[in-house]
């Protein structure tokens, strides 16, 4: 499944203070075209709830969530 995702841009949001992860992701998503996917790396537990809630609000789609040790990787598709 992971192979099927083509990531256009990667954002390193590790260690950022609230609410920067969401701010950066919502800005970052505008840097790619609709249908493209960005990858966001975060270490904050809040992001695990913030990102899905943000996706619901903004209308974008989290296609996959990966855990890599301490780092959580979100794959987000720009829908709107």
């Amino acid at each position: 499944m992971a192979d099927a995702i083509t990531v256009t841009k990667v954002f390193d949001l590790k260690g950022l203070a609230c609410p920067m992860p969401v701010v950066k992701v919502s800005k970052g998503i505008k840097e790619v075209q609709v249908g493209e996917v960005i990858e966001a790396h975060t270490t904050d537990p809040g992001a695990l709830t913030d990102f899905p809630a943000w996706a619901n609000t903004s209308g974008n789609k989290i296609v996959k969530t990966d855990q890599d040790g301490d780092v959580i990787k979100f794959y987000i598709e720009r829908v709107v």
């Binding site: 609410p19 919502s26 709830t49 809630a53 609000t57 903004s58």
Partner: peptide, 13 residues
């Protein structure tokens, strides 16, 4: 708009 987006995200949660 980012502040509104953040507020909406909180409400959605």
């Amino acid at each position: 708009e980012i502040l509104t987006l953040l507020a909406d995200t909180s409400i959605e949660k």
